[in-house]
Design a protein around this nucleic acid. Structure first.
Lengths: 234, 234
DNA sequence: CGCGTCCTTGAACCGCGTCAAGCCAGGTGG
DNA sequence: CCACCTGGCTTGACGCGGTTCAAGGACGCG
């Protein structure tokens, strides 16, 4: 087991905790935090399990995914470092989704009651969280729109850009930081792996991307965005 | 212009404000609240407009909708009385959606700065809002899953149940409280009005619903839910 | 080397979106 | 009162995009 870090030591600038909680509260949270490392492919939580608290992704990458209709999977969200997952207010008491590590990941867990206390006593944290949820909700609503109405080509481009926005690229190689399989891209786009392959071949022919074995390099972000007529980033 | 009501007089049990704010804050909010009545079909806000604050639906029904890809519209959310719409944290400064009254509606508006103050000084309100957003986010993510993978029949059943869950039925007539056109149902389901008609005929043949002119009566909720294999309400 | 996994490409089927025509109810005006 | 028009609803026929099925290649691992 690797070494445990406190919130003060963590150094993750994007963490909602360290951005919104200060002083003694940081110590209190650190004392009540559980940290776990998950190997690539392992589950953080699964559909149907009771909800005991929230998870914060400290390091790595995670997909939130549903075991799904007609045997297919659907990735409903990609989680970025510092973001929260698995909490849903007081209404639901069981997870509706699975959460799977895309790469080896470090995750912090906060108990439900502690979480409520943090919200009630750290207004800055609560406000930041409200903003985060607001944005995430908008993103989800945009995805509702996209999935409902786009052609396969647009959806694949969209999945690609979504992945790029969340995890970014390795500056030196220009390759996507966290590689996804064709099937995983299809699970984001809401289509099949075959269609993803076809569209990627198409994109390569148009010099928008380059493929080296299984790795993908983005050549023209603008070209990809142009595929989706009304894509907006702002 | 109809009479203005304060938060103390409003009597809406579901309002996030009255559930989470108390005493002098209720007075302060009332003093800073703008109330407007919107006729059926008119816009509360439109895509591209700057965001000055948040809207709370006091009475009526509202759809959040996008002018959309390939000329079609997509309803991304139905808003219930007491719920919040139009806020998205500090990142976005323009609305990404249109908001349209489904029936004559009364809406309260709170300025951005006032809203931030409310969040920072009413922990109960902030916590409730976090829970609300968490639930709404889950709902949106479920819709991502549904739209991406369901057949048209399932999507229409889904749209129907969604509408039913949000606005409910008139207890005496058993008709849906807020009637939607075929096109609006299609805009929820992510399909066309023709498909909605076909599926409704099908549902009628199976005695799941009854149609009287344009009004729809639900006969068997369970039957509709059964169409969507893994529909869960909990 | 053999096996499993992932990727790629082609071919065939079919669900659903599109187009078109007709129906019904409500509104308006003569 | 009827004639006419308009907007929403219904149903049928057609064609295309995308899913499915199948076969073969590339790569990694024991």
């Amino acid at each position: 087991m690797k070494k445990r870090t406190t919130c003060n030591e963590c150094g993750n600038d994007n963490c909602l905790i360290t951005q919104g909680c200060f002083g003694e509260w940081l110590d209190k949270i650190s004392a009540n935090l559980e940290q776990c490392w998950y190997k690539k492919g392992s589950y953080i939580f699964q559909e149907g399990e009771p909800i005991y608290g929230i998870y914060i992704l400290a390091h790595g990458g995670i997909k939130v995914v549903t075991t799904s209709i007609h045997g297919r999977e659907q990735i409903v969200r990609l989680v970025k470092e510092g973001q929260i997952m698995g909490y849903s207010g007081e209404g639901k008491i069981h997870y509706q989704f699975n959460s799977v590590a895309l790469v080896d990941s470090k995750v912090c867990f906060v108990d439900k009651e502690v979480f409520e206390q943090i919200c009630m006593n750290n207004p800055k944290f609560a406000y930041n969280l409200i903003c985060f949820y607001g944005l995430e909700l908008q993103r989800a609503e945009m995805r509702v729109k996209y999935l409902a109405q786009m052609s396969t080509r647009e959806k694949v481009a969209m999945a690609f850009l979504y992945h790029y926005e969340i995890y970014g690229i390795n500056q030196s190689t220009k390759m996507l930081k966290i590689p996804l399989t064709r099937q995983e891209l299809a699970d984001i786009a809401g289509t099949t792996a075959e269609q993803v392959t076809r569209q990627l071949s198409e994109f390569e022919r148009k010099k928008l991307i380059a493929r080296n074995k299984r790795d993908i390099k983005i050549l023209q972000i603008k070209g990809l965005k142009a595929i989706i007529k009304d894509y907006n980033n702002e």
